[in-house]
Amino acid sequence: MYSEKVMDHFNNPRNVGEIENPSGVGTVGNAKCGDIMRMYLDIDDNGIIQDVKFKTFGCGAAVATSSMATELVKGKTVQQALEVTNKAVMEALDGLPPVKVHCSLLAEEAIHAALWDYAEKNHITIEGLEKPVNDISEKEEGEEEEY
């Protein structure tokens, strides 16, 4: 069902864990499917993401996308991190099954939530960052076909 890359990131997730006193932390959940993802960021004074950790309660795809997302943002600037979309994460994982696309949104939103927290703590605004929604299922498109 999953690509080799997904399985690799699921079996050997990168950057699992917590960061003490993080620059920003965000927790997002998909109330529909009940999955929860938490992202910790350690951002230096130059706005570079020095470290990132995650914890995820969710399926194989959720774990793998969190893991991949942490790899993609690590060492990047805050602005670059904003550009890590769910599409980018999915591409980096060689794709996800259609029913699992929504899991990748969780990773994107978790980063945004952590960045929002960082911005609030530091009283700055990050260009292009919108206030994260707690329940990302509201943002999903893709109607289910009914038979």
Binding site: G17, M37, R38
Partner: peptide, 8 residues
């Protein structure tokens, strides 16, 4: 559980 935010 070690990677679950809920367990944390």
């Amino acid at each position: 559980r070690s990677m679950s935010p809920l367990y944390e």
